[in-house]
Design a protein around this nucleic acid. Structure first.
Lengths: 198, 198, 198, 198
DNA sequence: TATGAATGAGATTTCATTCAT
DNA sequence: TATGAATGAAATCTCATTCAT
């Protein structure tokens, strides 16, 4: 009988295998042949599971964000302080342990800006909407716990977008940016205005 | 008799000639052959003036931002209201008259994120630093005129980065974003907090 | 209980199932996947019964020629006129009812000219030798019945080869060839020279 | 200024350079990369001048037949005997010096039978029509010189087609065929019937 | 024995970049 | 300086054939 293959899983496996080389060389310096080799599959197999090189980045980002999400959820569950939760939430943009995913995310944003697949834009939209919901939960809870003034609720999306702006800004200029500090200042400022309880 | 060619000018001319097709099709869908044709020069000539396809985008953005700067400076000179000045400053990110340059700017950001030339990053850094200085001038003057509370000074860069974040966010998701409204709300919020004088 | 499969029969069945699509699209435009589908078997199964795509054409031609042979033998048995027999013999090359087999035969000849399997060449040789024997029988009988002058015996192979030449010629040029007429003229000419009795 | 290239000539040059390897390995065993290498050009260049591997064979055959034609014309001019002329005319099909071109011609016929380009069929048609005209000239002259009975005129095409039939027959069967002898016998027979003068 | 996923060779295409003129 | 033919690397695509199950 024929081999039954979990197409979704195999797509994931290939993407995971490709991560390192894309991270270290950059997408445009990596060839499909190379990706096939590091994934231990044939070139034809790559095109069975991906429609283009960009599609591989898509899957890589999807896989890594899924992992990231699980990690974040656990961290957030083990944290009670609203401020800490917010910091955990935003460490994607500066923590050194996420260098790889940030690198891939940059490739992903570049593709999204110029040659997006519909599925990519849909995915990215959903991710960001979800993250904003997360952040709203954190803030809501903070408000419920009287850590944060209820006026802040409207600032959630703004906060998220600012974080991403910081990331892009620091990634496209020579200007040195300490994203963590900037974010903390920003949050602090807002929190101050918003009367976070000491 | 040898024709004397102003290299800088010709580089500009070619870039300007290429603008429309890059705008309408996107850089990756346009070939050098096509660019050479619309610029009315040979393919080889392109490489006399540009080191790569990306370099053409660089020049295009440089030319358009230079024009944009002149336009903005005039507009700002003809405006006294601090709030209006801020709005004029940020209309790059939403005014329909700047659709083209925003489109090109997206290409430029995509290149900057993945395969930047040093000259591009330097240029982009300088541009943004300049714009932030502009904005600081606007804010400073607003403070001097007692339109704005002096605490806001530290918020200048933050404002700029938020604006860019909004732009990237709206460019990479399906989420409809009314950038103008968002910016105005944000500015309003800050101004409110910052006690902009009515 | 294990299913007992007659390998020879299954090979034939698959080939027969593939006939139509090869006829209508041409071998090189048909994929093994497609052949497997129309034959209602898996791609791997094809290779249980055939050593290559070409081998399928081989079987198809073998099956069709076997059917053709039976048909011809019956027709020849029901005919007494030598001239008619000769016409029946050659109608392979022009009768519209044999369009399909001629189409396949072209594929077969193309393979034989460039990448023949030994078995194919052996088969083709045997077929042609047999056909020439048939024709010799027809002619011999014609001679015995005093329909044909005995000198013609040496012309048998020539006649056959001329017929095939006509077929290839008409298949590879735009020149319109009425094969039936040409053959009849030729036979007539020879018969005339050869004093076919009226 | 740009290099001016004689496209027709370059197409010819590439085809000529590819001749040997196609002859020795057979078309299907040769890759485009290999052909590019032996022609000393890039793969991209191949596709500048040819639409497919088959198209290269087309040009190769065209070039070789052009050369062959010149050679034949010279030989025929230097010959007065009608019989010799006929022999010269047909030596394409058996003379050992034409092994290569016959090999290529086989590839060409195989393509013509299954996947012809219109240009190929047109070319082949024109070639054969021309050859038949040549042969008619030879025969006509033979008739004028009273070497050949005037009735033979109608046999010209038949003669040509028989020759090609012989070639295909001998190329697709194991049956050993001495094409030269067969042709001579055939011509002799016809000449005998046609009262070639001794 | 039957299968279709996997393979990988190779055709085809694309095109940024180079370079001879 | 200007040019476009040539290049060749790599993407994309196709698919006959293999092979693990």
């Amino acid at each position: 009988m024929a081999i039954i293959v979990d197409k979704e899983q195999k797509r994931r496996d290939i993407a995971i295998a490709c991560k390192d080389v894309v991270f270290s060389k950059g997408l445009s310096k990596v060839t499909i042949s190379e990706l096939a080799k590091v994934a231990g599959v044939g070139k034809g197999t790559i095109y069975e599971y991906f429609c283009s090189k960009e599609d591989i980045v898509f899957e890589m980002v999807a896989v890594m964000l899924a992992e990231y999400d699980i990690e974040k959820k656990q961290q957030l569950e083990n944290t009670t302080s609203t401020k800490e939760k917010i910091e955990i939430f935003f460490d994607f943009f500066y923590d050194s342990k996420y260098i790889e995913i940030r690198q891939l995310y940059k490739e992903f944003v570049a593709i999204s800006l110029t040659n997006p697949l519909d599925a990519m834009t849909d995915f990215l939209t959903k991710c960001k909407d979800d993250y904003i919901l997360w952040l709203e939960d954190i803030i809501s809870e903070g408000i419920k716990n009287n850590d944060i003034n209820k006026d802040v609720k409207d600032m959630v999306k703004v906060l998220f977008i600012f974080a991403e702006g910081l990331f892009i800004y620091s990634s496209t200029t020579n200007t040195p940016v300490d994203i963590k500090k900037e974010l903390n200042d920003y949050i602090g400022l807002i929190c101050c205005n918003m009367e976070i309880k000491k």
